[in-house]
């Protein structure tokens, strides 16, 4: 039974929660493996959370960029900013759509006003 227990437990890595047990590990500064955890979390999040129509290449590319920033321990604000920037294409498309709609709406309104003006003048001239 003990052998079985050992066999099962050997499948799992021995993890410590104390930083002093990890010596000369550049990826552990705040707590054990914090760098590796951050890289995994960031790449996973960027690959999973995506806008509709985003290609797999784009997701992989941005995951790699964010993973690189996390691995090299850039400031959190830079990483968050890069994450926001990675959705730039989506925001640009949305803004273009909104702008076109707005311009069209104003355009229609403007054309209607002109049409009414011309029509009323036409009616007036007929009288």
């Amino acid at each position: 039974m003990t052998a079985f227990d050992d066999a099962v437990l050997s499948l799992f890595p021995q993890l410590t929660t104390h930083l002093k047990h990890l010596k000369n590990d550049p990826l552990s500064q705040l707590f054990p493996y914090d760098g590796l955890i951050a890289v995994s979390a960031v790449t996973y999040s960027r690959y999973t959370v995506h806008y509709s129509g985003e290609s797999k290449t784009s997701r992989l590319f941005w995951s790699a960029v964010l993973g690189y920033l996390a691995y090299n321990r850039y400031d959190h604000w830079i990483q968050v900013y890069a994450h926001v920037l990675s959705f730039g294409t989506f925001l640009y498309d949305k803004a273009c759509g909104y702008y076109a709609k707005k311009v069209n709406t104003y355009g229609k309104y403007f054309m209607n006003r002109i049409g009414n003006y011309v029509y009323s003048h036409f009616n007036y001239s007929l009288k």
Partner: peptide, 21 residues
Amino acid sequence: YSKAGHLLFVTFHIQVGMGYL
């Protein structure tokens, strides 16, 4: 603050990713 900030950073990314999943 430095430890809690990093933990929040990791938790935010993992939890939001898992939420989308």
